[in-house]
Amino acid sequence: MRWEDVWLRYGRRGPWVLREANLRLGPGEAAVVVGRNGAGKSTLLQLAAGVLRPTRGRVVDRPRHVGWVPERFPADQPFTVQRYLAGMARVAGLGGSEADLAVDRWTGRLGLTRFRGVRLPELSKGTAQKVGLAQAMLRRPGLLILDEPWEGLDTAARELVPGLIDEVLAAGGSVLVSDHRGETARLPGATHWTVADGTVTARASADAPVEALVVVEVAVPAARAAGTVARLRADGHHVLGVRAAAPPDAPAPGAPATPVAGEPGGPPAPADGAGGGVPATGPAGRVGR
């Protein structure tokens, strides 16, 4: 998919939201769209999906099958999960039996099986977001577009997203994902598209080689563990885990007495994606960058 001098504004007198974007995303490639709130990340993704048309310029060579996961799934619809996904499979062009198979497969993989008879408005935000993921994957997309896919998902469900991305990439598809939580640290090799002041800058993600990783251990009061983890993630850090602190007189493995991972003499730094998102149960945690 190529973007040729793409400009976009909403309305004739509106300010330019995007200016002169020239981008390229090849088969098997992933790009992470980063930028501040309101910078135009969702706009960029909707241009890629074909939901928005460029005011000037054009987006060419878009794969035939596109899967788009919007930031908020539109749950205000009078269907059960099963009926909705079966309907969307038909909309995506799958035949009757293919559609049923696809719905079975994706409700199973995303843990939606027990919600199949539940009406969409009754779903929790995270479960509805999974329905959003499922509809995009029913027909394997040549281009998967994920707008903040981790929003609202619980820890276990967050782990599913990289798997979906890998599957699309392995099949020769492209993936475009926006992220302001630093979760895409788990997408090594993805290009970064930074949106700021209406311009998009693409750069290869080679600024954080694995050997440069260090692990920093932080102790916080138990009650503030969840908030700290959330803040660290929001700052782009990769939280490897959270565990209970050992009593002061009996240091447990991994407590301050143990050499810090990645330092000379210590255990090797964990590879990217090794941990992350263990439920906050205790006051001490390890943070990698």
Partner: peptide, 10 residues
């Protein structure tokens, strides 16, 4: 948003 989802798929 559902209308846009349908547009992307169809």
């Amino acid at each position: 948003v559902q209308r846009r989802l349908a547009l992307v798929l169809a």
